[in-house]
């Protein structure tokens, strides 16, 4: 077999469309996952046992099963409970829920890492619970949760490839289809790896930039 990259580049517009779908799904699922993950973490922290226990159970299930199985169950099992979704919404929903489970744990540990004295100081000057979350906890833990959050975003990006099995027209589905048509399997897989790696690298750089900008208030001993 001849390693002919040109076969792939002839299909560039289709590949770019696939990459576009991947990037959009990635950004939406990451933002949605972080948002809902934060709500879950807040609910578990302030909602009492009645909220904490069921949410904790869901998080454990989502973290304890492969994403491949989750997305199969959602897409093929969903219609049995009246949740018949097209591939793209199903993929987005599955990925967001999956991301939210992990993000909730990241935020939970972020909350826990903040010295209780910082919260007491805020209570003493009269801040309400909501103001403490917004003004103290959230900004203070940004620095702490940034590295694991970027890491999670990278994982979500790579998990978008799984969505190809429920026929979401993203990068992996597009490129491997081209590869099959042109009998260029190795070239297409190589190209896929290259594109994902480039995206991950870009995300890493972005995260690093944010870290540097935030590091002006690195934590002291207090």
């Amino acid at each position: 077999m001849i390693f002919d990259v040109n076969v792939i580049f002839d299909q560039l517009p289709a590949i770019l469309r696939g990459a576009g779908v991947t990037i959009l799904l990635w950004i939406a699922a990451t933002i949605g996952g972080a948002f809902f993950g934060f709500l879950v973490a807040v609910g578990r922290r302030y909602g009492g046992r009645l909220v904490n226990l069921p949410l904790g159970f869901c998080v454990e299930i989502l973290r304890g099963t492969p994403f491949l199985i989750q997305i199969f169950l959602l897409y093929y099992g969903g219609p049995f409970i009246g949740l018949a979704l097209d591939p793209v919404p199903a993929g987005l929903m599955g990925l967001t829920v999956y991301g939210a489970a992990y993000y909730s744990e990241i935020f939970r540990s972020g909350f826990a890492a903040i010295p209780v004295g910082h919260i007491e100081a805020a209570q003493c000057v009269g801040l309400t619970q909501g103001q403490i979350i917004r003004r103290i906890l959230l900004p203070e833990m940004t620095m702490l949760v940034l590295p694991p959050s970027v890491n999670m975003a990278v994982i979500i990006l790579k998990e978008t490839a799984i969505l190809s099995i429920i026929t979401v027209p993203e990068l992996t589905l597009t490129v491997s289809a081209i590869g099959s048509q042109q009998y260029a399997f190795v070239e297409s897989l190589f190209l896929l790896a290259l594109i994902y790696w480039a995206l991950v690298e870009a995300a890493g750089r972005l995260g690093h930039l944010a870290e540097t900008r935030l590091s002006r208030y690195r934590f002291s001993q207090s």
Partner: peptide, 11 residues
């Protein structure tokens, strides 16, 4: 209130 650990908000 003034604390032993100061408890300034680091950000």
């Amino acid at each position: 209130m003034v604390f032993q650990q100061f408890n300034l908000w680091p950000h």
